[in-house]
């Protein structure tokens, strides 16, 4: 799983960073998403999928195999 984020589209709701701080953080000045792990280990796959589904502006996406 490879993740990409769009910090321009991000409005800093912070759902991703609250649920999965190992993968996502937020910029201290404008709250926009900061990707900590573009290729997280499998134990985070479910959480990343939740983050993708929850993001209110679809600023998170993934590519690559999904298992």
């Amino acid at each position: 799983m490879r993740i990409a984020v769009d910090a321009e589209a991000c409005v800093g709701s912070g759902l991703c960073a609250l649920a999965t701080p190992e993968v996502f953080d937020q910029d201290d000045t404008d709250g926009s998403v900061v990707l900590l792990a573009a290729e997280p280990p499998p134990e985070f796959f479910d959480a990343v999928r939740d983050a993708i589904e929850s993001c209110p502006v679809k600023a998170i996406s993934m590519a690559g195999h999904q298992e």
Binding site: V11, G12, G14, A17, L18, P21, D25, Q26, D27, D28, T29, D30, G31, S32
Partner: peptide, 18 residues
């Protein structure tokens, strides 16, 4: 909206809330 939201969102980040 974006101009103001960006001014505020940095104060409501997940790590600040934690």
């Amino acid at each position: 909206h974006t101009r103001i939201r960006r001014q505020l969102a940095g104060r409501f980040t997940a790590h600040r809330m934690r």
